[in-house]
Design a protein around this nucleic acid. Structure first.
Lengths: 325, 325
DNA sequence: CATATATATACTCAGATTGAGTATAAGTAG
DNA sequence: CTACTTATACTCAATCTGAGTATATATATG
């Protein structure tokens, strides 16, 4: 019953997709590509088929795709999730294979203004970094609660949930912090999935659903992506936001030297919320995550700020060094 | 360049494997199967090939395999990781396909003594629940630091690390809490991977490595499993231990009514470490995870304990209800 | 140069949480 | 009745957290 003959692989293909996060001007960015032969204008993440004959591991394959499609070297890479549902990767003329999609999170400094080499490579390849809140406008709370929530998303979602079973209303309550619950910045995927199930994002069209009744919502639910790439991006943001709290991942996106304010603005940009300045400082210094370089920076107006660098040794000293804010 | 024709799926197969956790007599258990035609005596997790034509999603496929191979219904299911490296799933005569392995964590009440139906089904199928610390003896700290660490594992591992580059020594230090670091109960996978890389677990034999020099270590490094199943189990334990702290997963393994001591012993069994009794109580009650049933239990000796049940409503009240111990 | 303005950095303080107890209650075994 | 066992209540100091106030040091302006 359990022989290997049942491992009959035909008709299955594995797609590797990378959510490559960058940063420029306190804006979190995501690397997108466009392909000539699939150009319906929708954004895509760098991706490609895993071929075990050419790539020893998923990760090596992934790095090769990003390099080939955007000319970019990536640093930290971690696996997110493997999506296997039928339909979510479907495209016309694609009946031959069932595509299973392995999503990855990657971090890159290639979006920084000072990286001229990456900028040139991006221009040549046609790839580019897009602000990630374009795809999820309701996830940016830095300037307070986004208006789109109360004006468009929640009325429609509540209506949808009230017509379904109780579990839909429960999930909605938890994901969107109804009834006085606190907004959880890590539930990016939960929120996107609810919008998807409610048929409010443009991607549902490839599922063959009728969208005429809700299509006026699409303008409020962010820019769509090809395939299931927006779902992978949502997973990436969720993971990154969670991991910031117990791993020093921010520094993979920062320059070598930075002020504490720059560090804070970066964390705020990724977490999508505002932090208390004095307490942020205390946290960073208490955790010994950084050390002063001795120099200071002449900023725009105000007292000059000390410059700091990441203290790599912290990785060997503390079990879970991060910015639990 | 990015056409779907490159999604050429031949020679790839997807294997689904489940680490099904159960509990009996304060012992964490893992469901293992044995197959006649692959019977070299090594334990396996329930697993099988994903066939998109028969199973709409990975999860449905997985449930079907567990049902077929152990006659067991499983409750909570979550994806762990997808392993794609060449070699780790290899077996003689298995050249036709590259098997990519998607690991899952599942929880089941089927190992409880009162579940006669599951016991019967297990007997018929030949599957059984095994104590999980048999596979990872160094992970059980309930009775203090396990002797095997200082007597066998750490001397050999340190020796191995000192001959490699500095990063090996760093990983060893973090994973096994050298130099006064605190033991992190969640790093089960890190520790197993180090033992694997150092060639100290029996599974390395299928990698074609020479094991004559280290084979006397195998008796100290736990019982092996087929394929990469012990790695999946390590991932499952890591994830379960991490998630206990912010999700009320324990209750998926408990009966409907229980005393606080039973609850504590269960958490201790899973986390592999001893907890402070009075503080555990305080934590459980402060988080409003349970409510008294009004009855009490006549235990062996001592004052009778109140019986409690899980307060399901907590899922709707608090953002991350768990037992952060 | 004095002053307004902007940013950086230091320090305070009350309330909540945590780790590690002591004290007391309510059963069973002999 | 006494010893023993387990359950439950309460204490206390150290630490952490959220939300401030106060002060320092720059630039821009009249």
């Amino acid at each position: 019953m359990l022989t290997m003959e049942r491992f009959d692989g035909k008709n299955i293909a594995i797609g590797l997709s990378a959510a490559v996060v960058g940063l420029k001007d306190q804006t979190p960015l995501i690397l997108t590509i466009c392909a000539e032969d699939q150009g319906d204008g929708q954004d895509m993440l760098p991706f490609g088929p895993f071929d075990p004959l050419r790539h020893r591991t998923f990760e090596l394959g992934l790095r090769a795709f990003v390099e080939a499609q955007a000319g970019l070297q990536i640093g930290h890479v971690e696996q997110l999730y493997t999506f296997g549902d039928r339909g979510r990767h479907a495209q016309p003329g694609d009946k031959a294979y069932h595509v299973v999609s392995v999503g990855y999170l990657a971090l890159s400094r290639g979006a920084a203004p000072e990286d001229a080499v990456s900028a040139e490579a991006l221009k040549l390849s046609g790839a580019s970094f897009q602000p990630w809140y374009v795809y999820f406008p309701w996830e940016d709370w830095r300037a307070g609660r986004p208006d789109v929530l109360d004006q468009h998303l929640l009325p429609t979602l509540s209506d949808w949930a009230s017509k379904g079973d109780a579990s839909k209303a429960e999930r909605l309550k938890l994901a969107f912090a109804l009834d006085g619950l606190v907004w959880d910045d890590e539930r990016v995927l939960d929120r996107y999935e609810l919008l998807y199930e409610a048929g409010l994002v443009r991607e549902v069209a490839v599922d063959g659903r009728d969208t005429t009744l809700v299509s006026e919502m699409f303008v409020h639910t962010g820019r769509p992506m090809r395939y299931d790439h927006r779902r992978i991006l949502a997973t990436a943001i969720s993971r990154l936001r969670a991991k910031l709290k117990y791993r020093p991942l921010v520094f993979e996106l920062m320059g070598d030297e930075f002020t504490l304010t720059e560090l804070q603005k970066t964390v705020e940009a990724l977490a999508g919320r505002h932090l208390h300045k004095q307490n942020f400082r205390r946290l960073v210094e208490a955790n010994a995550l950084v050390e002063p370089t001795g120099t200071s920076s002449v900023q725009t107006g105000g007292r000059p700020a000390q410059l700091f660098r990441f203290r790599r040794e912290v990785l060997l000293e503390r079990p879970a060094p991060g910015l639990r804010v």
